[in-house]
């Protein structure tokens, strides 16, 4: 598959036929999935900017998950301790919407982590060469994968 097509699959949000969209997002296959362990050794060895961006996405995922927990904990006592106040009802209403937003952001971070790292792994070795070519104004080469 051409590299651009692979990215399109990762970032374009279009699922391959017969698979739900989430499969492409969550199920990014590691090229060395036969080697076991999801290729974390590979990730360490590869310092491409895409991997770094992927790592940041992973950290953001954790951070956003913490925010979700914080909201739950913080709003725990409100209902019982403040009966009769309309504000408590209002808070409960909006709490749900923000938990949904945080959940969506957290999941997006997870998706980006996988997609960025996977893409970085695909062209990590050619990263420098490509960047140089771009700097020189040449179009990025389309590479065929085996």
């Amino acid at each position: 598959m051409a590299l651009n097509a692979a990215w399109e699959e990762l970032f374009g949000g279009t699922a391959p036929p017969g698979q739900p969209a989430t499969m492409t997002l969550a199920g990014v296959p590691a090229p060395d999935s036969g080697g076991g362990g999801g290729g974390s050794a590979n990730l360490k060895a590869d310092v491409s900017p895409w991997h770094e961006a992927g790592n940041t996405a992973g950290e953001l995922r954790t951070s956003t998950a913490t925010s979700l927990t914080d909201l739950d904990t913080a709003n725990d006592g409100v209902g019982g301790g403040t009966a009769g106040f309309d504000s408590s009802g209002a808070l409960t209403e909006i709490l749900g919407t923000w938990k949904a937003r945080l959940t969506a952001v957290r999941d997006e971070c997870g998706r980006l982590e996988g997609a960025l790292k996977s893409t970085g792994r695909d062209f990590g070795e050619r990263e420098t060469a490509t960047r140089n070519k771009i700097a020189a104004g040449a179009p990025a080469p389309a590479r065929k994968e085996g």
Binding site: W7, E8, W50, I134, P139
Partner: peptide, 9 residues
């Protein structure tokens, strides 16, 4: 670091 539709996305 990259150009193309997917990098833009």
């Amino acid at each position: 670091t990259q150009k193309g539709e997917a990098a833009t996305k």
